[in-house]
């Protein structure tokens, strides 16, 4: 049996909000260590890997491994009915045909209970090895989100160029072009505002602005985003959870 209680529904609300526009159907794999999801978008350009470790829950138990096949839009409809500050408990039997979601108001005696039908989803679970990257950038997630939004107004592609101590986001469109340069920066008082660049080799890669604009829906999850890049390899965009992560592996665009 699975029983996972979040102190606040807001964490799962943000996670589902970040994923729902990229992937429609997901298997939520529940083990004693927590809940993990791996799903690839329909165009097979973006792979999402989610890990909510048991430590992200107030209480967590999962006696046997359970797979919950969930339709993200339906899950989102139910999740939106709960308040962000509600306690949220996920409950499923060992061979479940539904996932129960219980929202409890902390101040009042209000309990809202929902049941979501499960689906059989045929999905491969890939073993993603640790990858080696030539460049790693840690930067404020809100700053990254603004750059992705701004650059998308110019072009459907966004070029990321990394040299010694700066990252250049470059966009070449039909009616004009634009770029934003971010330099290494340490804010000792507000560490979440810092920009850190670790570089083995210079990087020049291009990505679809549409996918980056899906990825930045994770911004409310973490104050910093980690961007890991290497030539001829999927880029990794990572948002840390209190215990776990939400990762996006994005294919680069190649020259014609």
């Amino acid at each position: 049996m699975l029983e996972g209680k979040f102190d606040e529904a807001s964490l799962l609300k943000k996670v589902i909000d970040a994923m729902k526009d990229s992937v429609k159907l997901c298997n939520f794999n529940c083990t004693e260590n927590g809940i993990s999801v791996q799903a690839i978008d329909d165009s097979r350009v973006l792979l999402i890997s989610l890990l909510i470790e048991a430590g992200s829950f107030e209480d967590y138990r999962c006696d046997r491994n359970i797979v919950l096949g969930l339709e993200m839009e339906s899950l989102n409809k139910i999740i939106k009915n709960g308040n962000a500050s509600d306690m949220l408990t996920l409950v499923a039997e060992d061979s479940p045909d539904a996932l129960n979601l219980i929202f409890e108001d902390k101040r009042r005696d209000r309990i809202a209970e929902y049941s979501l039908k499960l689906m059989d989803i045929d999905q491969d679970f890939l073993k993603i090895e640790d990858m080696k990257f030539d460049a790693v950038v840690n930067m404020p997630s809100a700053e990254f989100a603004k750059i992705c939004r701004d650059m998308k107004t110019l072009s459907e592609s966004l070029q990321i160029i990394i040299t010694k101590d700066s990252v250049k986001f470059n966009s070449e469109g039909d009616f004009g072009s634009g770029s934003v340069v971010i330099k290494s920066f340490t804010d000792l008082e507000k560490t979440e505002e810092s920009v850190r660049i670790t570089l083995e080799k210079p990087i020049n890669l291009t990505f679809g602005a549409k996918y980056l604009n899906d990825i930045i829906k994770s911004t409310p999850l973490a104050s910093q985003v980690t961007i890991k890049l290497c030539d001829k390899q999927p880029a990794l965009f990572e948002y840390q959870l209190p215990s776990g992560y939400l990762r996006f592996y994005l294919a680069p665009k190649f020259e014609d």
Binding site: I40, S43, R44, V45, L46, L47, L126, I128, G208, Q233, P234, Y249, L250, A251, K253, F254, D256
Partner: peptide, 14 residues
């Protein structure tokens, strides 16, 4: 441009 199924093939390469 995107190479079709590149990401899928990348993670299935072995």
């Amino acid at each position: 441009k995107y190479v079709q199924n590149w990401l899928w093939r990348y993670f299935h390469r072995d």
